[in-house]
């Protein structure tokens, strides 16, 4: 069972984001970086599938600046076997299309049985790379899975359907699956894993970028939220509330 997991380094979720001087990118000089949390579910799932199969290899892959070795090394410490870093100093500005192409190029050379990634990276919140990978690699793709098992070359997955239903799908491999919360509890990188990770290889290669389908024209932060107001009490307040919702908030 050969599995490729795609991860992304994103600013820590409690970061205060600032728009850069160019007005189209984020000022990343003061940020702390983490593995996008949904990607950790993908790493854990890959390790569990490999362990269940009793054989195989998990390759963790990312496209990013040279510093992304830190996040890759953490995945190696969790138990991944090797890592591929597709270097791109401007990865922060790439659209999903460009990224997916670069990842797909590198994945093709590895001919995996399974490709896993988080359902969405928590920085841009676009959630496109997984589906695009399925398209480019010509593999079936199921998004936002919350359960996974593999038997006889087929993956059985569960995902949340509409109105609280659960959909169960069976898909032949190779396939692309994107992961969401509830699938598993990602393990910690422990003492043994960290020491072992020091010796595992990180293959660095220049990202073969696809063509951008989107460009960012400008980036701005949402206006600060206005403070709450108490308009009045009881039924008398309703008229005023409705007026404000209509005229000021313009949501009615």
């Amino acid at each position: 069972m050969n599995i490729v997991v795609c991860i992304k380094r994103v600013p820590a979720t409690d970061s205060r984001i600032k728009v850069g001087a160019d007005g189209t990118s984020i000022d990343d000089s003061q940020l702390e970086w983490i593995i996008s949390p949904y990607d950790e579910f993908a790493v854990e799932a890959a390790l569990q599938m490999k362990e269940a199969a009793g054989e195989g290899e998990v390759t963790v892959m990312t496209m990013g600046p040279a510093e992304s070795t830190k996040e890759l090394r953490t995945c190696l410490a969790m138990g991944c076997d090797k890592a591929v870093l597709l270097t791109d100093p401007d990865s922060g500005t790439r659209d999903a299309h460009t990224t997916a192409h670069a990842l797909a190029k590198a994945i093709q050379g590895l001919s995996p049985d399974l490709v896993l990634c988080g359902k969405v990276a928590v920085d841009r919140d676009q959630g496109q790379v997984g589906s695009l990978l399925g398209g480019i690699l010509d593999m079936p793709c199921i998004t936002e899975i919350k359960a996974l098992s593999i038997t006889d070359g087929k993956a059985t997955v569960e995902r949340a359907g509409d109105s609280g239903t659960t959909e169960t799908w069976t898909v032949s491999l190779p396939a692309v699956l994107t992961t969401t919360k509830g699938l598993n509890e990602p393990r910690y990188a422990g003492l043994k894993g960290i020491m072992a990770a020091k010796k595992k290889p990180i293959d660095e290669q220049e990202a073969q970028l696809g063509e951008a389908a989107l460009t960012i024209k400008s980036l701005e932060l949402p206006p600060p939220r206005r403070e709450g107001r108490i308009i009045g009490e009881g039924p008398e307040a309703v008229t005023e509330l409705v007026r404000l919702l209509r005229e000021e908030a313009k949501i009615l």
């Binding site: 983490i34 830190k70 090394r73 953490t74 410490a77 910690y188 990188a189 960290i194 990770a197």
Partner: peptide, 11 residues
């Protein structure tokens, strides 16, 4: 050293 540190701190 910073990379190792951040791994340990992360866990």
């Amino acid at each position: 050293s910073a990379e190792l540190l951040s791994m340990v701190r992360g866990s």
